[in-house]
Design a protein around this nucleic acid. Structure first.
Length: 361
DNA sequence: TCTGGGGTCCTAGGACCC
DNA sequence: TCTGGGGTCCTAGGACCC
């Protein structure tokens, strides 16, 4: 979907049309609101912004405080996740009708296996236009579609023309389509990998395609092989309909950095309760509890403990999470201040009521 | 300018077992 | 005195995605 969160907000509130709209952060609590500056005090980043806001240099992941300085007259809205989730499931229901298989990859993105629905590359374009038309008519939202012989190229293609784009990459043209693109366009190549590749003299996908695989493997391990295949237009991965949860977590950036053990322990308790409620809702039991801490200098540390058997008790979750916390605030006062706390459970199992035992994958 | 939250996957080292 | 190989599980950190 094109700038999904802000597009939904504009749809719900048409006066916003044509204005710079910035969605990010949350609604401030009463405490935070009574502070001198009511709105922008909250630590947060831009989730999504309208194309009008992008004109000001605003983009996803930018601190809200900076976005505010770049465009103080923009409409700033908190993230309204329940609304976007509702719209998302309506869109996914539309997509499902068009696909042999569908894999939802995020709230606003999905892969469709259209192998039997599309007959040739000319028909592919018609097919995509039908999808775009139905989403626009029923939801009043635009999207960008990429159609290609495999998932990776389809993803890159969907990003090629935006917003309201449609890019069809025929199998015979795949390598030529990829060759001139920068390597960062490959999903999985982030800032670090991009930098390493640059030092090797590889900036475009075409250069990666003709590079010695052995050297790529020496540098990147088995990911090197995959990179080389992708650059050559090869990706055999399937559209996977089933998704299995492997962990569940809640984390919170504090309003102010602290080393106060009671504040931190309260926070851990709250997060543990949220994690507990969430896993209970989904019917999970857990074996591993992990605590995450981000210090004021942004360094991140984690500590984990795996239990001998599965548990589903809130008090156990709280106790272990707080035990793991002690290492970071032992009360000596020498520690750095803490900015964020997170609680996560993993090694999940599902209780099979009939057999009265825990089932894991 | 001052940096969110929820995930996945990979790697490397150590403990432990046979 | 110097010392196997293979496997699993766990922990911590880091890259990446949206």
């Amino acid at each position: 979907m094109d700038s999904f969160f802000s597009a939904v907000e504009v749809r719900e509130n048409p006066e916003l049309k044509g204005l710079p709209v910035i969605v990010g952060g949350r609604i401030g609590t009463e405490e935070e609101k009574t502070a001198e500056e009511p709105e922008r005090k909250i630590r947060g980043v831009v989730s999504t912004c309208s194309y009008e806001a992008r004109e000001y240099g605003i983009h996803s992941a930018m601190p809200l405080s900076r976005a505010y300085k770049l465009c103080p007259n923009a409409k700033f809205l908190p993230v309204n996740m329940p609304l976007y989730k509702r719209v998302s499931s309506e869109i996914m229901a539309i997509l499902r009708k068009y696909a042999d298989k569908i894999e939802q990859v995020s709230i606003d993105e999905a892969f469709l296996d259209a192998s039997t629905k599309v007959h040739g590359w000319t028909d592919a374009r018609e097919y995509a236009l039908r999808i775009k038309r139905e989403i626009l008519e029923k939801e009043g939202l635009t999207c960008s579609i990429g159609i290609a012989p495999n998932k990776t190229i389809a993803k890159i293609a969907s990003d090629f023309v935006k917003p309201d784009g449609l890019t069809v990459v025929e199998e015979e043209r795949a390598r030529d389509f990829l060759a001139p693109l920068p390597v960062k366009k490959i999903p999985g190549v982030g800032p670090k990998t991009n930098e390493v590749l640059k030092k090797m003299g590889i900036e475009r996908i075409g250069q990666l395609a003709s590079y010695d695989v052995q050297k790529l493997v020496a540098k990147f391990g088995k990911y090197g092989t995959r990179l080389h295949l992708i650059a050559n237009g090869i990706d055999e991965s399937e559209v996977e309909e089933e998704w299995e949860r492997k962990s569940l977590s809640r984390e919170r950036t504090l309003a102010v950095d602290t080393k106060d053990a009671s504040v931190l322990n309260n926070c851990v308790d709250e997060l543990a309760e949220e994690v507990y409620n969430a896993i209970k809702k989904e019917g999970f039991v857990f074996k591993t509890v992990a605590l995450k801490v981000k210090f004021e200098d942004f360094t991140v540390h984690t500590r984990a403990k795996t239990l001998k058997s599965f548990h589903s008790d809130l008090n156990i979750l709280k106790r272990i999470a707080k035990e793991l916390m002690t290492e970071f605030c032992d009360g000596t006062g020498k520690e750095k201040k803490i900015r964020l706390v997170g609680v996560r459970v993993s090694s999940l199992g599902v209780v099979d009521e009939k057999q009265r035992r825990v089932v894991t994958s």
